[in-house]
Design a protein around this nucleic acid. Structure first.
Lengths: 237, 237
DNA sequence: CGTGCAGTACTTGTATGGAAGCACTTGTCG
DNA sequence: CGACAAGTGCTTCCATACAAGTACTGCACG
């Protein structure tokens, strides 16, 4: 896209880096952040760090309590459900707008993507990256690629919950199969079938979450207005 | 909601104020902003102003060009269409999840709202505020009130376009009638009817935009990568 | 008169120093 | 021993100074 337009700036780097760390659970839900610490460890001043935290706070990925502290937000079950609803509504509606003739370039890309999803020895993050691209390209097929951006921004909590779900022995192969069926229905021109399979797929993803929530409740927010805990002294190394 | 939780902070005030000014067109699309000027006129330092602009930039309501300037973003036809798609998908899907027994409190609120929409002498901003609440409450009926927040955040461009559309002699009465029909279908338990009327309503809103775009093209972005113009020297007084 | 170049006035980005506030710790007094 | 209060150390917020970069302005020169 307008890649040359966006000048490289320290804030953008830090923002993307922190965001990735939160989404991949490298920064665990509930972890305490600190402008000073982050600034020191990232080698910049507090300003770009602080501005990044503010952006992440607007996305709901961190919580900032004035004069108290900043924390990686716990996975909120309500927000997960909201993101699920939003995503389902948008992705299913998008299927209704599929054109008669699919863009062969995107279809080719989707097929390549699917093949890579089946590659053995795929690690979790690689699979998630492919999954993200797959769903985005599906929406590009119907000309709603930009709306995927909004969905992607809103589903931070959902993504973290999914990563928790795949933390164990879950295999991504099941999801890859579902992806395959969805694409098959689309290329067959079977819109109702595509809708049904897409809905089943998204719900399957969602159902995993309740399972993991029962297993690791401490990563989820119990109360919408959670009380922040003071920084636990964690000596690393 | 958690009103007492959010402490009053200078940044939050400024952010909300600027956002309102952009959405109500008090700050016209394309207008040049300046951290220094805004800070001076708002009586604070650059910091909270700057942080607010960064947030608004993430919402797409302003554009910040490093070392060049900040500008109220022009209404982007693409973003308007994206917002329309998103909103339609979410609001229509929400209707599918309506419970058998509607919350009487919300229904009552919706009825009161409708009555006020018909009050003669209603000005534009009053109508928009009521419209906003009406659609939000509709989603609350199906338990998706939180998702409205996401939609509301994404439809900034759509809202500005709508305000342009109602700048002329348009009467909100037509929309109030449509609102009435939607609510009637819902309380009758006629979900398909509600869907159809809601879709017509949202499309009617959208169609107005193309009309106004033909009339005032300068407020719309011609090119996705618009070239910012240097601040025009406007001496006031 | 046209053209190029240096100067200037502005912009946002980053760094840094208090200001204000919260929570825990510790000492003191009943 | 228990309770209360001052102290300490941390946090984020805000203000401000400087750095880096852009675009316009006006003058000199061909």
């Amino acid at each position: 896209m307008a890649q040359s337009n966006e000048r490289r700036t320290s804030r953008r780097d830090i923002y993307l880096r922190l965001r990735q760390m939160v989404l991949t659970l490298e920064l665990a839900p509930g972890a305490a952040l600190s402008e000073n610490e982050l600034a020191a460890s990232l080698g910049v001043s507090r300003t770009p760090v602080r501005e990044s935290l503010i952006l992440l706070a607007q996305e709901g990925l961190v919580q900032v309590f004035p004069k108290i502290g900043s924390f990686v937000s716990r996975v909120d079950a309500g927000q997960v459900a909201d993101a699920q609803f939003l995503r389902e509504a948008v992705e299913l509606s998008s299927l209704e707008d599929l054109p008669g003739q699919l863009d062969p370039e995107i279809v080719e890309e989707l097929r390549n993507n699917l093949e890579r999803q089946r590659r053995p020895g795929l690690d979790r993050e690689e699979f998630f990256a492919l999954d993200e691209l797959f769903h985005r390209d599906l929406m590009r097929l119907s000309g709603h690629g930009n709306s995927w951006t909004t969905v992607a921004a809103a589903k931070g909590h959902l993504d973290r919950a999914r990563r928790l779900g795949l933390h164990g022995h879950e295999s991504p192969a099941v999801f890859a199969d579902q992806h395959h069926e969805i694409l098959a229905a689309i290329t067959d021109g079977d819109t109702p079938g595509a809708r049904a399979r897409m809905r089943d797929h998204l719900r399957a993803v969602f159902n995993d979450i309740e399972r993991i929530r029962a297993r690791s409740p401490e990563l989820f927010a119990s109360d919408p207005a959670t009380v922040p805990v003071r920084r636990n002294v964690v000596v690393w190394e």
